[in-house]
Design a protein around this nucleic acid. Structure first.
Ligand SMILES: O=c1ccn([C@H]2C[C@H](O)[C@@H](COP(=O)(O)OP(=O)(O)OP(=O)(O)O)O2)c(=O)[nH]1
Ligand SMILES: [Mg+2]
Length: 1084
DNA sequence: CGACAGCGTTT
DNA sequence: AAACGC
DNA sequence: GTCG
C-alpha cells in the first residue's frame, strides 16, 4: 500500500501514463492540506527567514518586487480583493511550506546525511516535487510572502544578490536561462539548506524509490489490466476517488477530500445510470454493478473510468502549478518591463525535471492537450508576455512594450523570418519549450548521474510502451497538407504515453508521418523529447538498437519541429536552432560523442525544406552558435494594432470586478482553493485573439442576445423517446440540447454576464482562426448557457453547475468575474498576424486556408492581395466589395429589399412564395445578408423551380437589382435534383452598397425543413440536427429522416425514410423539442 | 476516448 | 477532394 | 472544451 501510495503521489505529479488510471490525482493536494494542518504550529516565517542563502546563489527575489510591494500587482478595483486573497493564500502556503520543509529538512539535518527511512522518502518526494513540478513555488512563495509583508523585506536576501537584477534586465532570457540551467539545481538545494552531498543522496534515494514504485505499479496494472483485479488493486481503485466528477455538486469538496466524496458520487452515479437506461441498455453499461466492485464493469466503462482518472490526475498536476503560475503572473503583472527572476525560474524546473526521467512528461503535460500546435505552454507565455493584466492599465503601450522587449532583447539571436514574422499561430507564443537547451549540465557535478537517469528513464518508458495497444486509426489531414508524407519518425522515447506527446505524435501521423518504434533504415527523422540530451539519446540508441551513431541522412530534431511544420504546413528547415536537440553538436562536428554531427545539414539530399519560412526561436538556442543574421522583428505584427486591443480590455475589467465578487468567492472555499483557481486562470496558454470583433458579425448591439441553451427537456414526449443513441453507448439522456430551450432575446447588454460572454466569443473566434475545430463550439455553447443565467456567475463552483461549462471555462468565468478580464485574451494581441488573418478571412471566398497562405507569402493588406494575387471570380468580387459585404444591413433595408424581390416574383409567377429567412426572420435589427426562400405549391423538387429562378434572376439583373452572381445552382450533375441555391449580390436602388443575397429553392414538401434550416441560427440548427442524430434520425434542409443507419464515426449509411419536411412545427414535435418561434432560436 | 450538423457550389 | 459558404 |  505504501508503495502504491507513493507511486500515486509521484505519478500524479508527473505525467500520468495511460496506465496510472487508478492513481488519484487529488490525493496530492489533499495530503498537502492535511499535512499542513498538522504542521500548523511551525513558525513559517522563521523558517523562511532562515532559509540560508548559501553561496549567494541567485535567489529568485527581485529587489524591485520588494520595494514596490503589493501595490504593484494590484490596481484598480481588484487590488484589494487580490490582496486579501493573496494574503490568505500565502498563509496557507506558508503552512504548507513549513510542513514540507520540516519533512524535508529535519530528517536530513538530524541524521548524518542519510535521513530516516520514512522521512527520507517523504523528503525526497517533496524535494522532487519542489524541483520538479513546482520548483518555482518556493521562491515565488517567498516572494509573494515578502510582498505581503509576511517576510522581512528581506534586506538580507537582497544583499545576497545585489546584482541579481542586472542579468535579468540586461541580458534577459538568454542570460538568465543559461544561468538557470547551470544553477537551478543548486539553488533548489541551497534554498533548503542542504549540502550538495545531502542533496545528491536525497535525489538518488528519491529516484530509487521512484523506480521501485514504478515497478510495483506496473505489476499491479498488469494484473488489473488482465482483468483479474488483485485485491489490493481493487481496493485502491475503489478507495481512490474514481470520481466521475461530472456529477459532483461541490467541486471543492472533490478536491479537498476526494476519498470520501468521490466513491459516493461514483456510486450514486452508477445508480442513476441504471435507472435511466434500464430499458435502453444494450451496451455494456447495464452490466455495471451498482456496487463498487469494478469487476463487472464493461470494458468501455472501465476505460472510461480510466480515462477519467488520467484526466483528473492531469488536473491535479495542474493544481500544483498554480502557485507557481500565480507567481509568474504576478511577476509579470508587477513589472512589465523588467524581467524578473521568476520568469526565469520556470526553466529551472524543467532542468531539474530532466534529471528525472519521468519528468519530461509532466512538463509537457502542462500544455494543454489537444492540438499542441496552437497552444503554447503557459510558461512560455508568461515569459514572453509578461505584460498583461496589469499592463492593461497602461494603455496601449504595454503589450507592445513587452513584445519589443521580447523580440528585441530577449531573443536577440533570434531568427529572422523571411516574411513577416512567422505564421500566425506560432507567434511568439508557440511551443513554449523552445528552450532547446535546458541544461548544459555538462560541467555540472551532477551531470553524470543525470545521464544515467535519463537512460534509465528511457528504459522504463520502453517497458511501458510494450503494453500499449491499439492504435486508433487516425484521420489523415487533407492530402495537400500532409507535409510529412513519406517520412518516418522515430520518437525518443518511443512511446506516446504522455498525453501531450501522444497528441503530437498522432498529429504528425495525420500529416503523413509514419511512426516507428524500431530504428530501421526507413527512419528519416528522430524526434527527441526536450528533456533528453543528445548524449543520452546516443547512449540510448546504442543500447537499444546497437546503433553507434546517427546515420547521416537521419534528421535529429526536438519535439518542436513536427509541431511547427504542421503549423506552417510545410517542411521547415530542421537545422534551425530551435529544433536542435539539447546538447547536440552543432552543424560542425562536435566533440560530443561520435563522429556524426547529430543534426546534419540537409540531411537527405533529396528532401526539400521550406526555407522560406523561418520560425523565430522563442528562446535562445543553447550553447550553439546563434545565428547572427537574424533580425528578430517581424515586420508585420508590430505595427498592427495591438495597442488598440489593450485598451479595449482595460475597459472591461472595470465594470466587472468589484470586491464583492471576491468576497463571495472567498466564502465558498478556502484560500488555497481560491488561489489555485486564480492561478489556473493565469496558467493558460497564450491565446490570442484579438477580438476581432468582427466587423459584421458579432457585436451588434441589439441583435445578438440571448439565448438559451440547453436545458433538460421538459417535453412531454420525453418518455416516448427511447433513446437509441448513436454514440457509443449511452444514454443520450437528457435533452441538454441548446435547441431545447429557446433563447431569445435577453439582451446582450443587460445580461449580467455580458463581459464574460464577450470574452468567450472572442476566445471562440480566436480558436477558430487557429483552426481548432472544437473549442469554438465549446465556447459558444457555454456562452449560450451563460446567457441564460439571470445572475452574474462569479465563482467557479457556481459556473460548474451550468451546462457546457466545465473546469476550464469555469475557471475563466471566475477569472473574468474577479479580475475583469481574461488573460488568455491578452496573448491574442501578441499575435501579429492574427489581425491580418481576420482581414483576409472576411473576404468573401477566402477562408482560413487561403488567408494563411497569403500571410505566409508575406501579404499583409488587402491592397497587397489585390495587386499581387490571382483571385477567382468570387474572391475578386469579395475583395472589391470588401467593405460592402462587411457592412450589415439594417432591418428597414432588409424589408425594402424583400419588397423588391417579392414584387418581381409576383410579376413572374404569382404562385411562388417568398419568405425572407435568416436573421431577418429571427427578428434581427440588422443582418449580414438577405436570405430568401422561394417555393411554389406543387413542386416536387427544387429543380422544378430552376426555370423560374432563371427568369427571376434575369429580370432582376436587368432591373439592376442584382449586381453579380457568386454561386448558382449547378444543374449539370445528372438528373439529381441538386440545384437549389443561388448566391449573389444585390443593390438597393439608391444605395451604393452591394449586399449579399441568397435564394433557396424549395419544393413544397420540403418547406418546413427548409424554413427551419434557413431560419437558423446555425447553432440552433446544429443542435437540432445533433439531437436528431442521437435519436437515429437525420435532419437537413429537406426534411427529417428516420431509421438512418450510421457506421463508425456516425457516417451515414442509409438515408433513412422521410418523416417530415413540410411542417416546421411537426419537426419540432417529432424531435420532442418544444416549439420555438424564430426569435427564440438565437443561440449565437 | 470519441463525438461535436449536414449539405451545395467552386476549383 | 479540398475549400468555402449557408 | 465539454459530455457521456
Ligand atoms: O453554417 C451554417 C450557416 C447558416 N446556416 C443556416 C442558418 C442561418 O440562419 C441560415 C442563413 O445563413 P446566414 O449565413 O445568412 O446567417 P444568418 O442567420 O442569416 O445571419 P446573418 O445573415 O445576419 O449573418 O442558414 C446553417 O444551417 N449552417
Ligand atoms: Mg442571413
Amino acid at each position: 500500500m505504501a508503495a502504491l501510495y507513493f507511486t500515486a503521489t509521484l505519478l500524479s505529479s508527473h505525467a500520468t501514463t495511460g496506465r496510472s488510471a487508478f492513481v488519484h490525482p487529488t490525493r496530492l493536494p489533499q495530503s498537502r492540506l492535511v499535512d499542513s494542518q498538522s504542521a500548523e504550529h511551525a513558525p513559517p516565517l522563521n523558517l523562511i527567514r532562515e532559509l540560508p542563502n548559501i553561496e549567494g546563489q541567485h535567489e529568485q527575489l527581485n529587489p524591485r518586487d520588494i520595494e514596490t510591494g503589493p501595490e504593484a500587482c494590484n490596481h484598480g478595483d481588484t487590488k484589494d480583493c487580490l490582496d486579501s486573497i493573496v494574503k490568505r493564500f500565502i498563509d496557507k502556503v506558508v503552512q504548507n511550506i513549513t510542513e514540507e520543509d520540516n519533512a524535508f529538512k529535519n530528517p536530513t539535518r538530524t541524521s548524518d546525511g542519510r535521513p530516516p527511512k520514512r522521512c527520507g522518502f517523504l523528503s525526497s518526494l517533496i524535494f522532487w516535487r519542489h524541483c520538479h513540478t513546482a520548483e518555482v513555488n518556493n521562491s515565488s512563495r517567498d516572494e509573494r510572502a515578502s510582498l505581503l509583508g509576511f517576510l522581512p523585506r528581506s534586506n538580507n536576501t537582497i544583499r545576497h544578490f545585489p546584482d541579481l537584477t542586472v542579468p535579468y534586465t540586461a541580458k534577459l532570457q538568454k542570460r538568465s536561462c543559461e544561468w538557470l540551467e547551470g544553477d537551478s539545481f543548486t539553488r533548489c538545494i541551497n534554498s533548503r539548506g542542504l549540502s550538495w552531498f545531502q542533496a545528491t543522496l536525497v535525489v538518488l534515494s528519491g529516484v530509487l524509490l521512484y523506480l521501485v514504485c514504478m515497478l510495483g505499479l506496473l505489476l499491479c496494472m498488469t494484473r488489473w489490466r488482465a482483468n483479474s483485479p488483485h485485491p489490493s488493486t481493487l481496493r485502491t481503485m475503489t478507495n481512490t476517488p474514481i470520481a466521475p466528477s461530472p456529477d459532483l455538486n461541490c467541486p471543492e469538496t472533490a478536491m479537498l477530500s476526494p476519498v470520501e466524496e468521490v466513491p459516493a458520487t461514483g456510486l450514486r452515479r452508477t445508480g442513476l445510470r441504471q435507472v435511466d437506461d434500464v430499458e435502453a441498455q444494450t451496451d455494456g453499461t447495464a452490466d455495471f454493478p451498482a456496487t463498487l466492485g469494478l469487476d463487472g464493469c464493461s470494458d468501455t466503462w472501465r476505460q472510461w473510468i480510466e480515462y477519467k482518472h488520467n484526466r483528473e490526475a492531469a488536473e491535479a498536476d495542474k493544481i500544483k502549478y498554480f502557485d507557481q503560475l500565480y507567481a509568474l503572473k504576478q511577476s509579470s503583472d508587477e513589472e512589465e518591463d523588467t524581467h524578473h527572476p521568476r520568469e526565469v525560474v520556470w526553466p529551472r524546473s524543467r532542468t531539474i525535471a530532466s534529471k528525472f526521467p519521468p519528468s519530461s512528461q509532466p512538463s509537457e503535460r502542462r500544455n494543454q492537450p489537444s492540438d499542441s500546435q496552437n497552444k503554447v505552454p503557459s510558461i512560455h507565455r508568461t515569459n514572453s508576455a509578461p505584460v498583461s493584466s496589469v499592463s492593461i492599465a497602461n494603455e496601449s503601450s504595454p503589450a507592445r512594450k513587452s513584445s519589443l522587449l521580447r523580440y528585441g532583447v530577449s531573443t536577440p539571436p533570434s531568427v529572422e523570418t523571411s516574411f513577416d514574422g512567422k505564421p500566425p499561430p506560432a507567434g511568439p507564443s508557440s511551443p513554449q519549450y523552445r528552450p532547446n537547451m535546458e541544461r548544459r549540465t555538462v560541467s555540472d557535478p551532477v551531470a553524470g548521474s543525470l545521464v544515467l537517469k535519463n537512460s534509465s528513464g528511457i528504459t522504463s518508458m520502453l517497458q511501458k510502451k510494450q503494453k500499449r495497444k491499439r492504435e486508433p486509426s487516425i484521420k489523415l489531414a487533407p492530402e495537400k497538407e500532409r507535409v510529412f508524407q513519406g517520412l518516418t519518425f522515430f520518437y525518443i522515447p518511443p512511446d506516446d504515453i504522455a498525453p501531450l506527446r501522444r497528441a503530437r505524435i498522432t498529429k504528425a501521423k495525420s500529416f503523413g508521418a509514419i511512426w516507428t518504434k524500431d530504428f530501421g533504415m526507413d527512419v528519416t527523422h528522430v524526434v527527441v523529447d526536450k528533456a533528453l540530451t543528445y548524449q543520452s539519446i546516443v547512449q540510448y540508441l546504442k543500447s537499444a538498437f546497437r546503433i553507434d551513431s546517427l546515420p547521416g541522412n537521419v534528421v535529429l530534431v526536438n519535439e518542436n519541429y513536427p509541431v511547427e511544420c504542421i503549423q506552417f504546413r510545410s517542411l521547415l528547415d530542421p537545422r534551425q536552432n530551435q529544433y536542435a536537440v539539447t546538447g547536440s553538436p552543432v552543424s560542425v562536428a562536435s566533440p560530443t560523442i561520435d563522429k556524426h554531427p547529430g543534426v546534419e545539414g540537409p540531411n537527405k539530399g533529396d528532401r526539400e525544406y521550406d526555407l522560406r519560412i523561418q520560425t523565430p526561436p522563442r528562446q535562445e538556442p543553447s550553447t550553439q552558435e546563434k545565428s547572427p543574421e537574424e533580425v528578430p522583428t517581424p515586420k508585420i505584427w508590430r505595427p498592427s494594432g495591438e495597442p488598440k486591443k489593450a485598451k479595449k480590455i482595460v475597459k472591461s475589467p472595470q465594470e466587472a470586478s468589484p470586491p464583492k465578487n471576491i468576497r463571495t468567492v472567498r466564502e465558498n472555499g478556502d484560500a488555497l482553493d481560491e488561489m489555485i483557481e486564480i492561478a489556473m486562470k493565469t496558467k493558460d496558454l497564450p491565446l490570442d485573439d484579438d477580438d476581432d470583433s468582427s466587423g459584421p458579425p458579432s457585436s451588434n448591439g441589439p441583435e445578438d442576445s440571448d439565448n438559451s441553451d440547453d436545458s433538460r427537456e421538459r417535453s412531454p414526449n420525453r418518455a416516448a423517446w427511447k433513446k437509441r443513441r448513436k454514440g457509443p453507448k449511452g444514454t443520450m439522456n437528457q435533452e441538454n440540447f441548446s435547441c431545447m430551450t429557446g433563447g431569445t432575446g435577453t439582451s446582450s447588454k443587460s445580461n449580467p454576464n455580458a463581459a464574460t460572454i464577450e470574452s468567450f466569443k472572442e476566445l471562440a473566434s480566436y480558436y477558430e482562426r487557429i483552426r481548432d475545430p472544437w473549442r469554438p463550439m465549446a465556447y459558444r455553447r457555454a456562452v449560450t448557457a451563460l446567457r441564460k443565467q439571470t445572475k452574474k456567475v462569479v465563482s467557479k463552483d457556481e459556473a460548474l453547475l451550468i451546462p457546457y461549462v466545465g473546469e476550464s471555462i469555469a475557471e475563466k468565468i471566475q477569472e473574468i468575474a474577479i479580475k475583469g478580464h481574461l488573460r488568455k485574451l491578452d496573448y491574442a494581441k501578441l499575435e501579429p498576424n492574427d489581425l491580418i488573418l481576420q482581414t483576409f478571412t472576411k473576404i468573401y471566398g477566402v477562408g482560413l486556408t487561403q488567408a494563411y497562405k497569403w500571410i505566409q507569402q508575406g501579404y499583409k493588406t488587402l491592397d497587397d492581395i489585390k495587386s499581387h494575387v490571382r483571385l477567382n471570380d468570387n474572391q475578386r468580387i469579395g475583395i472589391d466589395h470588401y467593405d460592402d459585404f462587411n457592412t450589415r444591413i439594417p432591418q428597414d433595408q432588409m424589408t425594402s429589399l424583400g419588397e423588391i424581390v417579392k414584387k418581381a416574383v409576383a410579376g413572374i409567377d404569382a404562385d411562388v412564395e417568398v419568405i425572407i429567412g435568416g436573421s431577418y426572420r429571427r427578428g434581427a435589427t440588422s443582418s449580414g445578408d438577405i436570405d430568401f426562400i422561394l417555393s411554389k405549391p406543387g413542386t416536387q423538387s427544387s429543380s422544378d423551380l430552376l426555370p423560374f429562378l432563371n427568369t427571376l434572376v434575369t429580370h432582376l439583373t436587368e432591373t439592376g437589382f442584382l449586381a453579380a452572381a457568386l454561386a448558382v445552382p449547378r444543374s449539370c450533375s445528372s438528373a439529381s435534383d441538386s440545384g437549389s441555391k443561388w448566391h449573389g449580390v444585390c443593390v438597393l436602388p439608391g444605395n451604393p452598397i452591394w449586399r449579399r443575397i441568397d435564394f433557396l429553392l424549395v419544393p413544397e414538401p420540403e418547406m418546413g425543413a427548409a424554413l427551419l434550416y434557413f431560419t437558423g441560427d446555425d447553432i440552433f440548427n446544429r443542435s437540432m440536427r445533433l439531437l436528431a442524430s442521437k435519436r437515429g434520425m437525420r435532419l437537413n434542409q429537406r426534411g427529417l429522416y428516420k431509421d438512418v443507419l450510421r457506421g463508425p464515426g456516425r457516417v451515414k449509411i442509409t438515408d433513412g425514410s422521410l418523416v417530415e419536411g413540410r411542417d416546421e412545427r411537426k419537426i419540432f414535435e417529432v424531435l420532442g423539442v418544444p416549439w420555438r418561434p424564430p426569435e427564440q432560436r438565437i443561440l449565437n
